[in-house]
Design a protein around this nucleic acid. Structure first.
Lengths: 230, 230
DNA sequence: CGCTGCATCTTGACAGTGTCAACATCGGGA
DNA sequence: TCCCGATGTTGACACTGTCAAGATGCAGCG
């Protein structure tokens, strides 16, 4: 084997045909490449030099657009947060119930389902978002792209329709987010990995029911355990 | 600055006085060094070569005791799990209540408090355990060293005293573990980082109360919201 | 007591990574 | 038109994990 012939560092940064010296939008291209890479190889597989190769640009070109590696992953993590919001909203859109109380309760459950949907569908990206959570929460999350904010709105509705006591509303984000986030982790990396989709669904139902029941107790609302399912 | 004078690779692996060629128990020394390193610099700061320097041994010596880096961190993560169990048990030991039902409920809360205690006290080690959760759950966790198993016992007690319905017992580990795990994450890396100890305590109380209330509802037990506090 | 086998540790090398400094190139405003 | 600043490139350095080969010392056997 030729020892030096394939030093990957010297990979031609010469672009494919018709590529100008200045890349069209290198910043965006790098982010997209990063998303693809994390999707395939998980957060640990992310390497600036590898991204540069994928985009046909020299290593170091990224430094014109990101201060360092962490800045890049923070940006990607921010986008992932946005995608999580999308996933939650997709589930929210499926709630058609008219009755205000039941509707609000089902919307809370839908929020959780959407969150877990994303974790199960994109485990690599989800792990990245978890691992770089400090960086993300340091960043100003764009309005409408923050899962916790969306959760907060749904919880507010729950108070408005009288299902949730204002006292119990305090720190409710923590409880709810914890439940679905923890469930996601256990599902993709913990003892529940390898479970069938059906098993996961019913387990998640139980978690969501537990939350619902907990809040019903604050106002003394009588509920049925299958209210949230269907 | 002298450019080459400090190539750290050539750091003398010559041991301090009185060190034999064969290290006494290199494996254990490496693990302890790893714990110290993670405690200081977090999971990402962990480097085999750095550990070797700390223990005054050449790089590569670790390979006689661990297949690769991942094996080392898996071992460390396993120990961390054990420490988490210790922390939970420390809290369990403080529950002195006689009344069986209230005792079982408080033991569940104590379990959660112990888990969060560890996360707040040792955020670096806690993050390592989270990040390498897949590796840990692949390993056979030693009996009595598994947080989930301990949680399971406490939950069984809750059924025995009639506070928790057998039906609600199903997947209860997931709900409970998710709640405290998620709370820990939010506290050390999420939007709650920077909160005072008091704020965190009352927030955790609310989470634990929500769980308690949820389970009380399954058997129709009437409870007071301050039962778990004090 | 001496020799030999083997687990343990060391040396040396290679590929890969992030990051800094210096240089090249292009496009748009004076 | 020219020049300057943004963008991209080249080259280097320190650091990492990991493999292959050699050195070393203990333990057990003759």
């Amino acid at each position: 084997m030729l020892t030096l012939s394939r030093c990957s560092d010297e990979d031609r940064p010469v672009s494919p045909p018709t590529a100008p010296y200045h890349h069209g939008d290198l910043r965006e291209a790098l982010i997209e490449a990063a998303v693809a890479s994390v999707r395939e190889n998980g957060p640990d597989g992310l390497a600036l030099r590898d991204l540069a190769r994928r985009v046909h640009v020299s290593h170091n070109a990224a430094y014109r657009h990101f201060a360092d590696r962490d800045a890049l992953v923070a940006e990607v993590a921010g986008r992932v947060m946005g995608s999580i919001v999308d996933s939650m909203q997709a589930r929210l859109a499926t709630v058609r119930t008219r009755d205000p109380v039941l509707r609000a309760r089902r919307r809370l459950a839908a929020t959780g389902r959407g969150y877990v949907d994303f974790a199960l569908t994109e485990p690599g990206l989800f792990r990245l978002a978890c691992a770089s959570l400090p960086a993300v929460s340091a960043t100003i999350t764009l309005p409408g792209r923050d899962p916790l904010a969306l959760l907060g709105e749904v919880l507010d509705d729950l108070v408005e329709v009288g299902f949730l006591t204002p006292a119990a509303r305090i720190d409710a984000e923590v409880t709810c987010w914890s439940a679905v986030h923890g469930f996601s982790i256990l599902s993709i990396d913990g003892p529940m990995q390898g479970s069938t989709a059906k098993e996961l669904t019913t387990a998640l139902d139980r978690v969501l029911i537990a939350i619902d029941r907990s809040y019903a107790a604050t106002t003394g609302t009588t509920i049925g355990d299958r209210d949230l399912i269907g």
